[in-house]
Design a binder for these strands. Structure first.
Lengths: 205, 205
DNA sequence: AAATTGATAATTTTGTTAAAAAAGTCAGGA
DNA sequence: TCCTGACTTTTTTAACAAAATTATCAATTT
């Protein structure tokens, strides 16, 4: 027999999927609770039975999305042949993650300031996992004697992540913020890899 | 005898100063032509006699400000003992420049997109001068045999400038965008110097 | 003629309010 | 316990008037 709790979870999961779909395609502000309910052929009131309000539904979706991302990181941690490979993985994985979920994150860009703390906790968790992956890769590389012992790997990784974040396509530096196209994405990726490369050399003996 | 043209230039200069003062303290949108005229005890109509409109007055002020900055760069170019010194100079000079003119640039932050092309031309000019300074420093360092020959110094410099731009104070990564205080500024500077340091090592033999 | 101004026109921003849309609640039914 | 339709409350949008600001110009002074 299937317990009531399980049933609830299944339904919650369906709601999360429908919500994710809407948020991903139309963004937070352009999807209504009615539409989500409509997609599921259920009443809007039922959504409120399962989730306290719209923003917490969004956060729940976000947690799911983040969990998948975190899994893709933890699956790979400590499996890299060298430091460079770890950086490449980080750069590419994060890149894909942001591109696939671009519209979903309009909520961020819209509110920018004064986002609920829960959101920042998730963001921090993701940041920390990314950092951990690289910190671990650095430590391994040090242990292998490939690079100089690093006094504070956490600091170094945070610095490089910030630096990578600053790298943008030259061609869109001004001009209308068109959604970066394929070429731009490739350009950004190439630059980041180059930066990581120089950075790694800077850590060597 | 003082020519009419000279007189005009003198008056234009006075207007630019008054405008700069207002823009710097209250930003573009919060200063009115009436206020600038009032500061100079002249009629608003006279401002329009000397400058076609508000935005072009702003651009004129900006050109003046940029010219000063460019001068401080050209005064120092090719005077550095080593590459690191050049980077430190770039980081500190740009930092001071942005901090002193913070409010003046609210025009940028407000319009963000669709700024007039003239503005971008000035920004580009400044960027190029900063890059030139560092490119020149790199070439000198290569000539001195301190670092490996760099195939494309322009590219490398552009990359590092982007990277430095991405470096922010950890403590304000989320939270309300309060104006970064003294501590934050110091933190950012320290991080940038560290990044430049590692970067330079990455360019060495 | 060049420099200046007060008065005025044109445009943009701000404030107000009503209507529409969306979020959120609840009593009651299966 | 799960679910809904009808309802209330809050937020967004639209329309429009009032106020502020930009911009112009005919007239005046130097």
């Amino acid at each position: 027999m299937i317990s009531a709790i399980d049933q609830q979870d299944v339904k919650k999961e369906r709601i999360l999927e429908a919500a994710h779909h809407r948020f991903l395609h139309y963004g937070y502000s352009k999807t209504t609770m009615n539409e989500i309910a409509g997609d599921l052929s259920m009443s809007k009131a039922l959504l409120y039975y399962y989730f306290p309000d719209k923003s917490q539904l969004y956060v729940a979706v976000m947690k799911k999305v983040a969990a998948e991302y975190l899994k893709s990181l933890s699956d790979k941690i400590n499996t890299f042949a060298d430091l460079k490979e770890a950086f490449i993985f980080q750069i590419d994985t994060q890149h894909d993650f942001i591109v696939t979920n671009y519209n979903f994150f309009d909520f961020f860009r819209l509110n920018e300031q004064n986002l609920p703390d829960v959101i920042w906790e998730i963001v921090d968790e993701v940041h920390n996992s990314e950092a951990q992956l690289l910190v671990s890769a650095i430590k391994t590389e040090v242990a292998r004697g490939k690079i100089k012992p690093v006094a504070n790997p956490e600091e170094i990784v945070a610095l490089l992540l910030d630096a990578l974040h600053g790298v943008r396509a030259k061609s869109v530096s001004h001009k209308k913020t068109m959604f970066p196209n394929k070429e731009h994405l490739a350009e950004i990726r190439a630059k980041r890899l180059l930066l990581a490369d120089i950075f790694i050399k800077g850590l060597m003996y």
